[in-house]
């Protein structure tokens, strides 16, 4: 059995008096696309934010390749975070910066790369995502679909090993949705990153997913492949997929 890349063990987290995660267990393996589904407000984003360190768990552990994240040395933790990238629900692009500056930002502030290399990388990603020609524009001047692609370009510009997608298709029409999904699939194959996707797009997302986990009431209620889901007779799962109110 392979060691999971990221493993949640009994992770609990509450904000104030309201618990969000209650003893959550989940394994994420290298190179896979795992999709987390679940009702709104069940803590799917919180789950992703635990991985990237924006939120700290109250109890339980998160293992990175078998080692607890909290016990990693500062250098190791930093190098782990450097491999991560996060695509936000609302893109979180900076309005006051041009598209080029937005995409270049993760490279610029680290100041590891010389300027011409940054330029090369940014233009390469922009070309791959069909964004050439809008370098000098600002996010507010773009359509929703374009902005999404810019956000994706920004997430991919650092050559991440793990990409966390927080509802990458909210606010897009079905055609664009499909495009984003195939984009994720395509680039995942191309760059071989591990993708964790939080999504509501059932059943389309099942075509993208290699594994699916369902989050409900703070725990993972179901974890398995697409086939497992269709075969399963779990009531909660089926109700959710069919859109019934539980």
């Amino acid at each position: 059995m392979t060691i999971p890349l990221i493993q949640f063990i009994d992770v609990s987290k509450s904000f104030g008096a309201s618990p969000v995660l209650k003893g959550l267990n989940l394994s994420i393996y290298t190179g896979e696309i795992i999709v987390v589904i679940g009702k709104s407000g069940t803590g799917k984003s919180v789950l992703l934010k635990h991985i990237i360190g924006l939120v700290q768990q109250d109890s339980g552990q998160i293992l990175i390749e078998g080692k607890p994240l909290s016990q990693l040395s500062a250098v190791d933790r930093k190098s782990f975070y450097r491999k991560l990238s996060y695509m936000f629900q609302d893109n979180a692009l900076f309005d006051f910066m041009s598209i080029y500056d937005n995409i270049a930002l993760p490279l610029m502030e680290d100041s590891i790369f010389p300027k011409h290399q940054v330029k090369k990388k940014v233009l390469e990603r922009m070309e791959q995502l069909g964004l050439i020609g809008i370098e000098e524009k600002f996010p507010a001047q773009l359509s929703g679909g374009m902005r999404k692609r810019v956000a994706l370009a920004r997430a991919l510009v650092i050559d991440p090993k793990i990409v966390l997608f927080d509802e990458p298709t909210t606010g897009l029409d079905p055609v664009r949705k499909k495009k984003v999904h195939s984009m994720i699939q395509e680039y995942q194959k191309k760059f071989e990153f591990t993708a964790v996707i939080v999504s509501h797009d059932i059943p389309e997302i099942f075509n993208v997913a290699q594994r699916i986990a369902m989050l409900d009431e703070g725990t993972i209620k179901f974890e398995g492949s697409k086939k497992d889901i269709l075969d399963s007779h779990s009531k909660i799962l089926n109700d959710f997929i069919e859109g019934k109110d539980v």
């Binding site: 924006l54 975070y81 991560l84 996060y86 930002l105 993760p106």
Partner: peptide, 8 residues
Amino acid sequence: DALKTMHI
């Protein structure tokens, strides 16, 4: 949050 994820 996005800034934080970019180590800024």
